[in-house]
Write a protein that binds this DNA or RNA. Structure first.
Lengths: 350, 350
DNA sequence: CCATTTATGCTCAAGATGAGCATAAGGAGC
DNA sequence: GCTCCTTATGCTCATCTTGAGCATAAATGG
């Protein structure tokens, strides 16, 4: 077997958590200040180091499973006990983490998605709940098609496609842009969040490309030319996150949007009882689109996903609404109990 | 940060590949003889060491990404260049791998799913293509409900549920069995493959439980009592695989069944052109159910997933069939182009 | 009392789906 | 050539599902 060395190079398993809550119709993300020091990488960032996802290393001797390791350090760092946790993806690209810059070790990160209910400010210092659409603003279509798409992103993607080396790679780029962003008669697919972020990154619309290049330089890696940003820093769409954390966030959002369609995970984000509008608003917050009220109600009520409690919520701003709860029995009745299929389509009127 | 030690314990990243092909309506899996030696673990196996999934370690210095590492050693070991590759899941439970038994290192395995077309016998020694339903026979409903389910598995699951410590944990077990295996009016959900395997493992229906326990003993781990098999070895459902590879296979099958519904991955397994029946048989092989011919045809033709070539296939055994090809344009036309939604439902008549 | 807001129930057309039937066009056996 | 068998292909039809909108109910704030 080639490539193996007598002295094994060291590997560290990192565990990243995308901890999500929905409050006041806003999908929020628990962020921290980046803990691993990365001198020089963010030195010219006007706002200081960008927000990072919570991170902790696996204890290879102490943690019996990866998920238990994640739960352990989230508990240690925030005092919070996680409920619903699901593995997202494992990121192993070299030089993702500044720790690698020192030649210490290869860092492979296993990212998890956690859904929590309450939005307590959290015990950790520097921890903050932030609207996740501030990092991926083009994903929020609840107020209509984001102006960013036509004003900033579209033209930059066109320039990127036009800048391809030859004709065939140009048409490949064009097709990729069309499919990923639903252009030219195509449809916007809410789940292609990661593909869109990666395209935006490649097209020079993400500052992270600069930082990544700086890290590679600091480590003396082979370079394929410094990336050029397509726009001045202040005009780039969305706020950046530390390291490759925006990519992880995009993975989480795409996965979650898919999952609410066929598994009742949305209830992990809601209180025990809720009105149907609260439920709808939570789904809309994740899906990033507005839904038809009557049809949504029919979907969840006739679909057996919820049942009324008989109690009323009076602080609705209008007629009082019945409080509903999740109906567990649906798990054995229906094949893929979730909201959607294909119900998750944008709506014109409410 | 608690739990960290001055001298970092070693970690090895393993890369596992579930390499799948469909030939002659049989979904096949590339297996090898287990390479890591595990003395004592399979000593009383009548048939010798069980088949294993191909495995290779990540080269932390040489491999720029995990997927490139996977592609590298598959190329090195089998001479085969992989096409479609998708990350499946990362398995990090302690003592999964016999290498850990020696106290050498913690092994964390990133499993990948690869879809290939041809079924060449492969260059590696000991490599074999095996029908994957031999490992998970209860997942194949193409010839009707597997007799195994009522004859062997069902009663054993009932005994397992009845053996719970108290009433509430018993009813929890019962509910889990009902949902996972679609009992008591519930529906069989083809995608819950992993959940079913895990239940079968817990209920003492998988030999792997014995091996795992043996490994823990050899390492001097805390034991929670030797697992008792629910049946004599020869009566256990399905053939075992080495280590936790049957679990990885179950993960792959479940993921693939889900994916064919909304992404056109099925075409990765077919030749450039194919008849509609070949396409249907391939889908059935993965989904494990028979489909309605007319409706399937309507789904893929009207759904714009395929287009006729005008050429005919004559060796059909009946009237010649038109050869079709995948229609790439569907990627930009449709939201989730795949076979199903909800089309993938078993059928009574053909 | 009225405008506004949210809740809830209902209708209706269009489209998708499940199931089956009928006919077409090959080959094999005689 | 004829019959039977096999697979291909086209079509129907009842039933559900979905998208969109309307009407009424019940709260609040002026």
């Amino acid at each position: 077997m080639s490539g193996r060395r007598a002295r094994e190079p060291e590997v560290i398993i990192g565990l990243n958590a995308v901890i999500v809550a929905v409050t006041e119709e806003v999908p929020r993300l628990l962020t921290v200040e980046p803990t691993l020091d990365a001198p020089g990488v963010w030195e010219d960032e006007p706002a200081g180091p960008p927000p990072a996802l919570p991170f902790g290393p696996l204890d290879p001797e102490g943690d019996a499973t990866l998920q238990l390791g994640l739960r352990r350090w989230v508990r240690e760092q925030t005092g919070r006990e996680l409920g619903y946790v699901e593995q997202l993806y494992t990121f192993g690209t070299r030089n993702r983490e500044p720790a690698e810059r020192l030649g210490e070790a290869r860092v492979v990160s296993v990212a998890y998605l956690a859904l929590v209910r309450e939005e307590s400010p959290s015990g950790a210092s520097g921890a903050r709940w932030l609207d996740w659409y501030r990092f991926l603003p083009w994903e929020d279509w609840r107020e209509g098609r984001p102006a960013l798409l036509d004003g900033v992103i579209g033209p930059a993607l066109d320039r990127w496609a036009a800048g391809a080396a030859d004709v065939s790679s140009r048409s490949a780029r064009e097709e990729r842009v069309d499919i990923t962003f639903g252009r030219r008669g195509g449809l916007w697919d809410g789940e292609r969040v990661l593909e869109r972020y990666e395209l935006i990154y490649e097209a020079g619309l993400a500052v992270e490309a600069l930082w990544d290049h700086r890290l590679r330089r600091l480590r003396g890696e082979p370079e394929d030319g410094a990336p050029r940003l397509a726009l001045p820093r202040s005009a780039l769409p969305g706020q950046p996150m530390a390291f490759d954390h925006r990519r992880i966030l995009a993975t989480a959002l795409g996965r979650l949007r898919g999952k609410i369609r066929y598994r009742p995970v949305i209830f992990e984000l809601l209180p025990e009882t809720f009105t149907l509008l609260q439920l709808q608003r939570a789904v809309e917050a994740l899906a990033g689109v507005r839904l038809h009220k009557g049809n949504f109600r029919r979907l969840v009520e006739h679909g057996g996903l919820v049942e009324g409690t008989g109690r009323l919520e009076v602080r609705t701003g209008g007629r009082p609404a019945e409080l509903f709860r999740f109906r567990r029995e649906v798990l054995r009745e229906r094949q893929a109990p979730g909201v959607g299929l294909p119900g998750l389509r944008p709506v014109t009127a409410s």
